[in-house]
């Protein structure tokens, strides 16, 4: 009987006491619970507690033992929590400023290589990614706009990945990419390996003499598109625009400003081997090529 309400009580308690951070605005929920103790005295339901005075602990316990089954656990049991040891942090709050985790460990105490080989469930990523797409899809005017937003979501990831993956390299081979080829190799090998667990399939330079600033990174089967089926009327859309944003972030961060877009090239004919084949078109700004020519000379 009583145990029926117990789990709830426990979760509330652990919720309050066992937070990683002494999150400060705890008074709202705590106070809210405490002040709610007197009012929702289950008088109308049970008919036995007529008074609305602040609950006495032993009376609550009596109540619980008598009519615990339907007793709303939040009302009565919270009294234990509220009178229990104060949830840490109210002191720090009055001082304002920085908050530290109760363990004293900050992001600076974590080794950078710990999660080097750990992997993430693809299902949870797919779920998150679908939410990201529907978030980006709100109030967009067209497919280009939607791709632009996905691109923007990826951009900061690329900027940060650049430094993270470089510092994870062995110290002897740590080198900043100085030319386009070195940068694209870094993307094809290191970035892809980190994000998708394999290298990109091909790297190509545009054979069109009018566009020497265009390079292509080709992925036969982009991981992010694994569970994405694009409706027919939006066939222009390729959700790997998110990955294109990551690539763009890497290029921008390394001082090779570029525009990167994702294009589906597969699915044109029946029985194709890679219907989801995607080309990431990297178009560098003119100043990058100019500098490239100068460095090549020097």
């Amino acid at each position: 009987m009583h145990s029926a309400s117990l789990p709830c009580e426990l979760t509330v308690q652990s919720e309050l006491g066992g937070r990683a951070y002494p999150v400060l605005p705890n008074p709202p929920d705590k106070r809210g619970l405490r002040s709610s103790t007197p009012q929702p005295s289950p008088a109308p339901i049970f008919g036995e507690s007529k008074q609305a005075e602040p609950p006495h602990l032993d009376r609550i316990q009596q109540q619980n033992t008598k009519s615990a089954k339907r007793a709303p656990p939040t009302a009565s049991n919270m009294a234990h929590v509220a009178t229990g040891k104060p949830v840490g942090g109210s002191k720090e709050q009055s001082g304002g400023g920085l908050r530290y985790p109760t363990s004293g460990k900050t992001i600076y105490h974590r080794p950078l290589n710990r999660s080097k080989t750990s992997e993430l469930s693809q299902a949870s990523f797919a779920y998150l990614f679908s939410e990201m797409i529907s978030y980006a899809q709100k109030r967009v005017t067209g497919i280009q706009d939607l791709e632009k937003r996905l691109n923007l979501q990826g951009h900061p990831i690329g900027l940060k990945l650049l430094d993270l993956l470089l510092i994870r390299e062995p110290a002897r081979t740590q080198a900043r990419p100085l030319n386009i080829i070195a940068l694209l190799h870094f993307i094809k090998i290191n970035i892809w390996q980190h994000l998708f667990g394999r290298q990109a399939d091909r790297l190509e330079k545009s054979s069109n003499p009018d566009t020497p600033d265009e390079y292509m990174i080709i992925d036969n089967e982009p991981l992010v598109n694994a569970y994405v089926s694009v409706p027919r009327e939006m066939s222009q859309l390729n959700c790997a625009a998110f990955v294109a944003g990551i690539i763009e972030g890497v290029c921008d961060g390394a001082a090779f400003p570029a525009r990167v877009t994702a294009h589906s090239v597969g699915g044109k004919e029946e029985g194709e081997m890679w219907p989801g084949k995607t080309v990431f078109l990297v178009k560098f700004q003119p100043e990058v090529l100019e500098r490239e020519a100068l460095i090549g000379k020097g």
């Binding site: 920085l98 992001i107 950078l112 900061p156 940060k160 430094d163 993270l164 510092i167």
Partner: peptide, 24 residues
Amino acid sequence: YENYVKATMSPFYKVNMEIRSLVF
């Protein structure tokens, strides 16, 4: 550099933001 990369790993840190952390 190692600590700087850790600072940038914070989801609330954007590139080119001032680093205010006392731990840093």
